[in-house]
């Protein structure tokens, strides 16, 4: 098992390398001389320019610049933001935490809701409950995540039950750690709900189909022939087999979750990577864009790795190969 994980990690190394190359090329192969543009930009001080020129070899050919950049990345130097005049790594670190919190929250909520609902619908196959749930799932799948977020913001603004935007309330300083945590969660709830609603439909559909498939499997007949009570047949034998393929698709889902999170963050004003990269794009803060893109890809790879490890733990057929 350990060897399998090591092998997976090693497989990701060339992928990471390719990602840096692509991130770099996207920014640098664009039409227009980037370096002159930087110098013309009144927002950027000559000192910054000089420092960047030194660190990133901006006066050198593009390929050499790339190696400068990679060297800097390896030492966690992601350049300095032109707009904020602070290191990009510092900016990203702060935002990354919020994005990860939002993503983890919504992944957990999505799974915790979609799996029981999927099982329920599978057991009610052909009844009106299944029809209603599946219709709702269809609506959920088709609603754009930003629209869900906007609707929730609208509702929250009308009812004033949930705070909109930011991570903390104004009384932050005097509060105890627990109060701070609860306050953070309260702020997380709105973007978290939006992201959960956006993702739950497809996961529900998958779970329902998997569970139905598992229920039709021969080993279920074996379990019933042994005289096992329905609880064990459903929740031991069928469930375990229905959840395994869900872990595999977790990697694919994650890409959507990260994209959705970024968009929902912007709509609900949750200070995460989404807002950061949008502002960077708007202010042509290109090194920050590059760094954010790379971090986004890195998160996805990390998520895939976690999914791989989970799958290995859940499925003996892979573990013992």
């Amino acid at each position: 098992m350990r060897r399998y994980i090591v092998r997976r990690v090693l497989q990701f190394v060339p992928l990471l390398f390719g990602m840096t190359l692509l991130s770099f090329l996207i920014i640098h192969l664009a039409p227009g001389d980037y370096f002159t543009q930087l110098k013309m930009n009144p927002q950027i001080s000559p000192e910054t320019i000089a420092a960047m020129e030194r660190n990133f070899g901006l006066d050198k050919p593009v390929l050499v610049q790339y190696f400068y950049w990679v060297k800097n990345i390896l030492t966690f130097n992601l350049g300095e933001s032109f707009a904020y005049h602070v290191p990009n790594a510092f900016l990203i670190k702060e935002r990354l935490l919020n994005t990860v919190a939002l993503s983890v929250f919504s992944i957990m909520a999505t799974w915790m809701l979609a799996i029981p609902l999927g099982i329920y619908a599978a057991r009610k196959k052909g009844c009106w409950q299944e029809t209603v749930l599946s219709a709702a799932a269809y609506v959920g799948i088709s609603l754009p995540s930003f629209f869900i977020a906007m609707l929730l913001v609208f509702l929250a603004a009308r009812t004033m039950v949930l705070p909109i935007g930011g991570t903390t309330s104004i009384f932050w300083t005097g509060a105890s750690l627990w109060e701070k945590f609860v306050d953070y969660l309260r702020h997380l709830l709105l973007p978290g709900m939006a992201l959960t609603l956006a993702g739950i439909g497809s996961l529900y559909r998958l779970m329902k189909n998997n569970f139905l498939e598992a229920l039709g499997s021969p080993y279920i007949l074996t379990a019933r022939a042994k005289g096992l009570p329905p609880v064990l047949v459903l929740y031991k034998h069928a469930l375990r087999n229905a959840v395994n393929p869900m872990i595999t698709i977790f990697g694919y889902e994650l890409s959507g979750i990260l994209s959705g999170a970024a968009l929902v963050e912007i709509i609900t004003n949750w200070p995460g990577m989404g807002r950061l990269i949008l502002d960077a794009v708007l202010s042509q803060d290109l090194y920050l864009v590059m760094a954010s893109l790379l971090i986004g890809g890195f998160l996805l790879i990390l998520g895939n790795l976690i999914a791989d490890i989970l799958l290995v733990m859940a499925d003996p057929r892979i573990r013992l190969r």
Partner: peptide, 14 residues
């Protein structure tokens, strides 16, 4: 491997 939204914005930025 890149989340599509990030890629969309980065490409737009260039």
């Amino acid at each position: 491997t890149f989340p599509s939204f990030y890629l969309l914005l980065a490409l737009r930025a260039s």
